[in-house]
Design a binder for these strands. Structure first.
Lengths: 337, 337
DNA sequence: CTGAAAGCGCTTACAG
DNA sequence: CTGAAAGCGCTTACAG
């Protein structure tokens, strides 16, 4: 950093008070006299002083920042959540640091360093595969951590999540209500908690409805558009086809519809498709996508709020879980069987 | 931050050397003896020490972080760029702080604080409306700043940008090559540099081709899907309609196509449409979108690299501009007139 | 209400 | 190659 920014010393000199008083005037205005406050404010204006956060943080042993670990920053799913987190954090005067967990630099060790290094007062994890509980160091002296969207079944760290299996149930019931009895599912990436939850929701609901969960109607995927297109190819190759498909996210639903379209198969006339997430394009896709909405910026806000409470409360890192409901949005990609 | 993390003192004690030596072993390994290095490394392992960045930064007068100011974090356009920035920064050992410029907290004053407060060694601006040159304080002692994608015509801060007008020219020429002679344009938000550049490219090319730039064929927009749909409504209301439309971004192109589709108008059979950006969904949209590709993670990397060079070089904040070429991707939303 | 003084954890000339 | 010492800019008990 360049030198010569005014320091608290400069302000003290101009105001003719001690640095302690300047500091107090800033942090506890009510503890200095009205007159002093005025003089200090004045000196601050004249010098153009702003507090050096680094020095303050060193002294206070805090960082004024939280870090968010994101599996893929370029993915709109995460950026919407990030947006909610940032809005809440900035309102609370906290900076937000981000790191993409696909970067080789972000090893578990580095996560530990973020915390130890006094870089962050807390951590939000959007990647359920991350295991901060494995970081050496007593958990007692670890800053708060909360999972957002994803979580890890091998620890009981607090998390904020959507009701994934409930959302999947909504999708399947909707298809059933339309008269569909042959229902398929496009899965997310293996080993992902969301994939498991959504699949679970689909299977349970199928079961409850007395419908068959046919192995060849469960298409493998990875949340990408391309995976949806691959599922379309598989659907086309089937002897007996499902008349409706619930995809584990909107991208795959779109890729699926698009793949079918290129083969001359129409959605919803030939197959009904429901997505998951309600991404921006969903209502302008052709056909407009019926999907399970998850309020993504809200979950980000909710996670940030939970984290900040823990930071401020300084309290116990009690395991806790908050679940946000999902909602079905019916549009034009589904119709009666 | 919680207490009791091991400090350099602890390491020194265990290694039976001075803290100065530990510090050197970490920062300038070649300046300590092989034996000492071994002993220090060993002590670090045993204590679980990681450097306290806050203290280091205070001493070194740097922050080890850059801040990226984003107009809308939830917008995939920006998140892709952010991803490129983050990848480069993290590779160089720099943390990245983000702030959404729509947050009221991010006033110009706050931008100044980011810099003064020793919070950041440099700044990347994705929002051309931001004017860091207006921040009080001599520019000489300001950390480096670079615009990315957008820029501001009222200052000559360095920027990395796409060839927007060249890209628009590509789009119009492509339409012309297909035999279209009645060509319209959907504009981005007013007052945006990208809007102006793209419109400029369209107008110049139309002119060069001897085609008319009809006022009622230039539809107002704002880069949103909804704006595209509104343009579709306007197109439908026209007496004389353009047979081809170049949109200033892909979202508007998709919204436009979707709006026409709902009215029974087919793209590309009835109108040809070309987008701008090549967003993820572009090739799975129905029809697959012909568009002008802008390598967004590359521009992010490029901006981060430029910033880091300036930070490391410590050098002059010379005005400089880097322009990345755009490329036309022909798919199915355009056809012969 | 205000100030003197210690100290947060590190780095870096300066000696040796 | 190594150590003693000062200092980065702030905050906060402790006195008064």
């Amino acid at each position: 950093m360049t030198k010569a920014f005014p320091t608290i010393q400069d302000v003290a000199r101009v105001a003719k008070v001690s640095t302690a008083t300047v500091s107090r005037a800033l942090s506890f205005p009510e503890r200095v006299s009205k007159e002093t406050r005025r003089v200090v404010i004045d000196a601050i204006e004249r010098t153009g002083y702003t507090v050096n956060q680094t020095a303050r943080n060193l002294r206070r042993k805090q960082s004024g920042a939280i870090v968010v670990l994101v599996p893929n920053l370029g993915n709109p799913f995460f950026s919407k959540i990030l947006s909610g987190i940032e809005a809440t954090a900035s309102r609370e005067g906290l900076n937000v640091l981000i790191a993409d967990t696909r970067q080789p630099q972000v090893s578990p060790r580095l996560i530990g360093e973020y915390l130890h290094a006094n870089r962050a007062d807390g951590l939000i994890l959007l990647d359920g595969a991350l295991r901060p509980d494995l970081i050496p160091g007593a958990p007692g002296k670890r800053p708060p951590i909360v999972y957002c969207c994803e979580w890890n079944e091998d620890n009981d760290l607090p998390s904020v999540r959507f009701d994934n299996s409930g959302g999947a149930a909504l999708a399947v019931r909707h298809l059933h209500d339309l008269g569909h009895r042959r229902i398929g599912h496009i899965l997310g990436p293996a080993d992902n908690v969301l994939t498991k939850e959504r699949e679970h929701g689909v299977r349970c609901t199928l079961d409850a409805l007395g419908l068959e969960a046919r192995r060849d109607w469960f298409f493998e995927g990875d949340f990408s558009l391309a995976a949806g297109a691959r599922a379309a190819a598989q659907w086309l190759a089937l002897d007996e086809r499902p008349t409706a498909v619930a995809a584990a996210n909107d991208e795959m639903a779109c890729g699926f519809i698009s793949g079918l379209h290129r083969a001359g198969v129409s959605v919803p006339d030939d197959v009904s498709v429901v997505g998951f997430d309600d991404i921006d394009i969903a209502d302008q896709f052709i056909p407009a996508l019926t999907t399970v909405r998850q309020p993504r910026s809200e979950i980000g806000e909710s996670a940030a709020t939970a984290l900040i409470e823990r930071i401020r409360g300084g309290g116990a890192d009690a395991a806790e879980m908050k679940t946000l409901a999902a909602e079905l949005i019916v549009r034009s990609s589904t119709r009666t069987a």
